[in-house]
């Protein structure tokens, strides 16, 4: 009985996959980055994806408040500042996503009883904001020279009403989409470190989006590599 159902499901899945195959929207908008652009923080970076831009600053390892001290590793604090008004629940939840991703990649046990602070300031929101946060965060942590086990990047995928996958969607595309997913992917094995989803989608669609994100992550990691190479090169 169960085997029959699964056969049917697979047939259905392959049908939906055929649709996705012909997608031409799988592009990443132009992206840019500037590192150590602020003088006060230990590490800073601005990351731009199309029109979406985020400024990130990292402080640490530094003295920690006694109430926040963890005896065997550093305390990581992530703060997200919206452009207008005070941080709300949405910012808090995004802070948590970013914090958990950073905690997974940073070697926090090398700096016990100290504090790391990462501040993310929205400069302009035109879709894929969470992935931009993640990319800016990684660039700022790199700039601060904090030891990490791997790098990470964020990729946002949207599934529109026709079932097509759009990577790095703009705000207008996000609005029209049926489902929106953001994945944080590590640089070592291209594994998913964090996922955040909104809307409804099927299991194969999710797998497809993960596979696309893993492909897209290679482009972003190449960009990381290029920008670091440029930074430490002797001439432009």
């Amino acid at each position: 009985m169960t085997s029959l159902i699964s056969d049917e499901q697979i047939l259905l899945f392959s049908g939906s996959m055929m649709e996705v195959c012909g997608s031409s929207k799988v592009t990443l908008r132009e992206f840019g980055c500037e590192q150590s652009l602020l003088s006060r923080p230990d590490g800073s970076a601005s990351f731009i994806q199309g029109e979406t831009s985020v400024l990130a600053a990292a402080y640490g390892p530094a003295e920690v408040k006694v109430s926040k001290e963890i005896y065997d590793r550093a305390t990581l604090e992530v703060l997200i500042q919206p452009k207008v008004g005070l941080p709300s629940v949405r910012e808090r939840s995004r802070e948590q996503y970013v914090r958990e991703t950073c905690e997974a990649s940073l070697l926090l046990s090398l700096h016990p009883r100290s504090s790391l602070t990462l501040i993310l300031q929205v400069l302009h929101d035109d879709g894929s904001l969470l992935s931009c946060f993640l990319n800016a965060a990684c660039m700022a942590l790199m700039d601060a020279g904090l030891p990490m086990s791997c790098l990470f990047c964020g990729v946002t995928c949207a599934i529109d009403t026709d079932g097509q996958i759009i990577t790095d969607p703009t705000a207008a595309q996000e609005k029209e989409s049926r489902a929106l997913m953001t994945f944080a992917i590590d640089s070592k094995e291209r594994r998913v470190m964090m996922s955040s989803t909104k809307g409804s989608f099927s299991v194969p669609e999710l797998q497809q989006c993960i596979a696309v994100s893993q492909k897209a992550s290679e482009k972003i990691f190449q960009f990381y590599r290029d920008s670091v190479r440029r930074r430490y090169s002797k001439n432009l």
């Binding site: 799988v26 908008r29 840019g32 980055c33």
Partner: peptide, 14 residues
């Protein structure tokens, strides 16, 4: 600037 880099729109291989 040496600290800044920009990349044009790229397509992801599918």
């Amino acid at each position: 600037r040496i600290t800044a880099l920009k990349k044009e729109e790229t397509s992801v291989e599918m």
